[in-house]
Amino acid sequence: MSTSVLFDHYGEPGTLYVKDEPVPRPGSGEVVVRYRAIGINPIDWKILRGDLRARVPMNLPGACLGVEAAGVVVAVGPGVRRFTVGDPVIRHGRPGTFRTHEAVPAAQEADQLTPQPGRFSAEQAAVLPVAAGTAYSALRQVGLRAGERLLVHGASGGTGLATVQLALLMGASEVVGTGSARHHALLRGLGATPVEYGEGLRDRLDRLGPFHASVDCAGGQQPTDMAVHAVKDPARRVTIADRRAHERGVPHLDHVPLELASTLDLIGHSPFALPVAARFPLSQAAAALALGLEGGVGGKIVLLPGE
């Protein structure tokens, strides 16, 4: 049997329920993946609450959250050439990973499955697509170059932590990241210069500047104002969190094609890891989402389907 975590109507994490279903069979051009780890992201609770129903419509009742996971191919449908049974893969893209098994299109054009590099554990592979992929696109959008100084707002969140590390891999001379004091040791350990957000942030940034580019992973009035203040060229600012910030001069993110594959190419064998702050069994997905909603976790949250 396959276990899924589903919801029948938009609402809070308590609306999720667990359902056992037959293991799916792959159709033409599909593979069935058995998930070993599943990443949780803010988009999950935004979808669940109905905040994104216009852009990410869900097939209710019986909809499934989850936009990233890592697992192993356990069955291959007719016409599949990219993968064979036993291949470790990373699944990313459309919602549907809050389950133990899933039938997934395997064509390159679908861009939903990427081979999992052997250097990553299932947990690390599962949390890469959203955080690291988004960070990669953001850094490409602002045109970060070697030797430049980058400002990252919300640096202690999943995407912020990825942005710090990828920027340094791209050759940034310094990455300054805003975050609460309790996360400063984590940011220093990754090579960033941490700075406390809140009152007086402008003065603190002025002492640390100048900056060539800015990536906002937090959203809100202060990150937007500070991005405009610290980086004069609008083309070198981006936000992943505030769709209204473009009205104030901070463009929203545009994802690049084959985002995850390009990110993995950049990482190669260089040191790179996203802290996992909490782990839950798949059956406790509601509790995992509730923790994420509280904020300030300081790393990724992972669901473990078990065997």
Rank of each mutant, 00 (worst) to 15 (best):
230 A>F: 02
231 V>N: 01
232 K>N: 06
232 K>T: 09
232 K>S: 09
233 D>H: 12
233 D>F: 03
234 P>C: 08
234 P>I: 11
235 A>P: 04
236 R>H: 04
236 R>S: 04
236 R>A: 04
236 R>W: 00
236 R>K: 13
237 R>I: 06
237 R>T: 03
238 V>D: 01
238 V>I: 08
239 T>N: 01
239 T>L: 00
239 T>Q: 02
240 I>C: 09
240 I>T: 13
240 I>H: 01
240 I>R: 01
241 A>R: 04
241 A>D: 02
242 D>K: 05
242 D>W: 04
243 R>M: 12
243 R>N: 14
244 R>L: 15
244 R>D: 12
245 A>V: 15
246 H>K: 15
246 H>W: 13
247 E>K: 15
247 E>H: 13
249 G>T: 06
249 G>Y: 04
249 G>M: 07
250 V>H: 05
250 V>N: 04
250 V>F: 01
251 P>F: 03
251 P>K: 04
254 D>S: 13
255 H>S: 12
256 V>T: 12
257 P>Q: 06
257 P>S: 08
257 P>C: 10
257 P>I: 12
258 L>A: 08
258 L>S: 11
260 L>C: 06
260 L>V: 09
261 A>T: 15
262 S>R: 08
263 T>M: 03
263 T>F: 02
263 T>D: 03
264 L>K: 04
264 L>P: 01
265 D>T: 14
266 L>K: 09
266 L>Q: 06
266 L>A: 15
266 L>C: 09
267 I>Y: 04
267 I>Q: 14
267 I>P: 01
268 G>I: 12
268 G>V: 09
268 G>D: 05
274 L>K: 02
274 L>S: 06
274 L>Q: 04
274 L>W: 00
275 P>E: 05
276 V>L: 03
277 A>Y: 04
279 R>H: 04
279 R>L: 02
279 R>N: 02
280 F>Y: 10
281 P>N: 13
281 P>A: 15
281 P>K: 10
281 P>G: 08
281 P>F: 03
281 P>L: 01
282 L>C: 05
282 L>H: 08
282 L>T: 13
283 S>Y: 03
285 A>E: 00
286 A>I: 05
286 A>N: 08
287 A>F: 01
288 A>I: 07
290 A>G: 08
291 L>N: 10
291 L>E: 07
291 L>R: 06
291 L>P: 08
291 L>K: 09
292 G>M: 14
